[in-house]
Simulated scan of single mutants.
Amino acid sequence: MAIINSLAATDNIFFSSLIEHVYQYGWVFLPQFLTPELNAALLHEAQYEADLTLAGIGRSNAHQLNMQIRRDATKWFDGQSSAQQNYLQLMAKLQQALNRQCFLGLFDFECHFARYQQGDFYKKHLDAFKGRTNRVLTTVSYLNTVKQGGQLALYDEKDTLIKTITPTAGSLLLFESERFPHEVLPAQDPRFSIAGWFRKNANINGVLDPAN
C-alpha cells in the first residue's frame, strides 16, 4: 500500500520514506504534507485572491476549452505571494531529494491552483505520454477537506482502479505522470488543490524546454 504518514516535510527521513514508496509503487499518498499554517495561507489565496479561470486541455497551439472533458478553474503560480514562495521552496527541496536518490534529472517544477465547484470534473487522462513530454512526476496538494464528491480515482497501466482518494487538507498525492491514468470525479462540495509537475529539460534542436 503506497500510503505513508508524514513527519516533517523538510525531514530527510521523511523524504527518504516518500521516495522509497515512489520507487517501489510509482505513487504515494501522504495524509499530512503541508503544515497547517502554509495550507491555510494557500487555501485563502486560492479562495479569495487568485484570479482563477476555466482550464483547457492541450498545450501551446493545441490548447482549447472542452467542457466535456474538464470543468475546473485554474491559476498558474507566479511566485509573487509569500505562500507561493514557501510552497515552491518546499517542492524544490523535494526535487533535490528525488534527484539525489533516484537520479531523475528533474529540471524544474510548475504548478497551478485548481478549483472544482459543484458538478465540476476532469475525465480520465494521462498527464504525459511516453516519449512526447517533459513531465515526469505529478503532484496534487489538497487544500481543503471534502465530504462529498471530488475524489481522485487513480488507475494502473491496465486501467484497473488502484485507489480512490478523498481530498483532505494538507495531504499530497505524487505519481509518475506517464504511467497512471486518473480522473477527478464530479464535485459536490467546493474542492481546492494545487496541481504540479516535476519536469525534465526537453532540449530539442538547441531550444531550451520547448512547449509540448
Results as ranks from 00 to 15, higher is better:
135 R>K: 05
127 D>H: 02
124 K>T: 14
96 Q>A: 13
115 R>P: 11
120 D>G: 09
107 F>L: 04
100 R>G: 12
102 C>A: 15
110 E>L: 01
102 C>M: 15
123 K>E: 13
135 R>F: 01
109 F>Q: 02
134 N>I: 08
96 Q>Y: 12
131 G>L: 09
116 Y>F: 09
109 F>I: 07
111 C>K: 03
104 L>P: 04
126 L>N: 10
105 G>E: 00
128 A>S: 10
110 E>W: 00
115 R>L: 15
131 G>D: 09
125 H>C: 06
118 Q>W: 11
130 K>P: 12
125 H>R: 07
113 F>G: 04
127 D>M: 03
119 G>S: 03
124 K>W: 10
129 F>D: 02
117 Q>S: 15
114 A>C: 08
130 K>S: 13
101 Q>K: 15
132 R>S: 13
132 R>L: 14
103 F>N: 08
126 L>C: 10
120 D>S: 11
100 R>K: 15
123 K>M: 12
105 G>F: 03
98 L>R: 05
104 L>A: 06
113 F>E: 00
136 V>E: 10
111 C>Y: 05
122 Y>H: 08
119 G>W: 05
128 A>N: 09
132 R>Q: 14
120 D>A: 14
130 K>W: 12
130 K>Q: 14
125 H>M: 06
97 A>M: 00
123 K>N: 11
112 H>N: 04
105 G>P: 02
127 D>T: 04
135 R>E: 04
128 A>H: 07
129 F>R: 04
128 A>W: 05
136 V>I: 12
111 C>R: 02
131 G>C: 07
136 V>F: 11
135 R>H: 02
121 F>H: 08
115 R>Y: 14
101 Q>G: 11
135 R>N: 01
103 F>V: 07
111 C>F: 06
136 V>T: 11
101 Q>L: 15
105 G>D: 00
108 D>G: 01
121 F>R: 08
133 T>M: 13
108 D>E: 00
126 L>P: 09
96 Q>W: 12
135 R>V: 05
